[in-house]
Amino acid sequence: MNHKIRALIHEYKSTITDEWMEEVEKFREDDYLQNISDTVYRNTNREFVDMLFQTMDRDKEQVKESISEYTDRLIQLGWPLNYITRGLQEFRKAAIETLNQKEEHRYRDVYDEIEDWTDEIVNIVVSHYSGTWENTVFLQRMALKELSAPLIPVFNNISVMPLIGTIDTERAKQIMENLLTGVIEHRSQVVLIDITGVPVVDTMVAHHIIQASEAVRLVGAKCILVGIRPEIAQTIVNLGIDLGKFPTKSSLKKGIEAALEMTSRQIIEINE
């Protein structure tokens, strides 16, 4: 940045800050900032604008480091990228208007200089936010794969696969892989697929479950669908989904009892 323009920005720092604080207060009512207290919001704004002024006196590597550290804190606190980009737009506007008013267009390259400066900061912020979120999403996907749909042996030749959460196409593939691998590994004769934790069973989810049961049958095991709540049963009927190819039970307990019978065993109560 031109050293004269940089000196002017420092000279009118107080005016620029006041105008900027007034403008960012106007989008304080946005939904994504509603849960942030007034004190935290004001302190964050003050820290934000101080950081912007400091970047003018640093080289590119120092600017990148300071902005990255600042955005890391905002990401950890759950502040959206939109807050920073709008804040930078308002800061650019406040700086340009202040210098033009005070200096009466003495420096006609004010706009270009400030535009280039703030654009560089925007690029660093967006790049850092994107990289951080991509890494977070990747780690979450890896964790989901590790925890998603394990096949748990509960008795000899009987295993349970509890399903929790929404089932999409990618997760259905993971379920299928875990199911077939687990059936062979545990030598399961009967597999209980428990959908108690699945909030919605639509045509796609039912299709994935039917595919899974067919795959189990092809490797020599049988499948029982358990955890069918009344609302899920009603949805299945209304959608015309045919689950008649394999047994269904309302609870895991009843499913285990059925699985024991299918493997020539049963639960017997012993009177003391």
Rank of each mutant, 00 (worst) to 15 (best):
W20N: 04
K249I: 03
K26D: 06
L33R: 11
I158K: 06
H3S: 15
Y111H: 15
P162K: 11
D18G: 00
A258E: 10
G87W: 10
E19Q: 13
I224F: 04
T196G: 08
D119I: 02
A149M: 07
A212I: 02
K254H: 04
P80W: 03
V137F: 06
H186D: 11
K173Y: 05
E177T: 12
K222W: 02
A206L: 11
N123F: 09
E103T: 13
K102T: 12
D72L: 08
P247F: 01
D31V: 15
F91C: 08
E11I: 08
I175V: 13
F91I: 00
Y12P: 02
L243P: 02
P199A: 05
I75H: 09
I5D: 06
D116M: 11
W79V: 11
T55G: 04
Q174W: 12
I75K: 08
Y107G: 00
H3D: 15
V137L: 14
L99Q: 13
V63P: 01
K102C: 10
K93M: 09
T39N: 05
L81I: 13
W20P: 07
V154Y: 04
H208V: 01
Y12K: 01
T98E: 05
Y12R: 01
V160H: 09
V24N: 04
D57F: 10
P230Y: 09
D194M: 06
D242R: 08
I67K: 10
T248R: 04
D168I: 09
M176V: 02
N271D: 08
E90C: 05
G182E: 01
E90R: 11
I210M: 12
G131F: 05
R108Y: 11
F246G: 04
E257S: 14
E134H: 14
Q140E: 10
N43R: 13
T118E: 02
E170V: 10
S264Q: 11
Q89V: 03
E103I: 06
Y41A: 04
K64P: 00
E47K: 15
Q189M: 05
L81Y: 10
I195G: 09
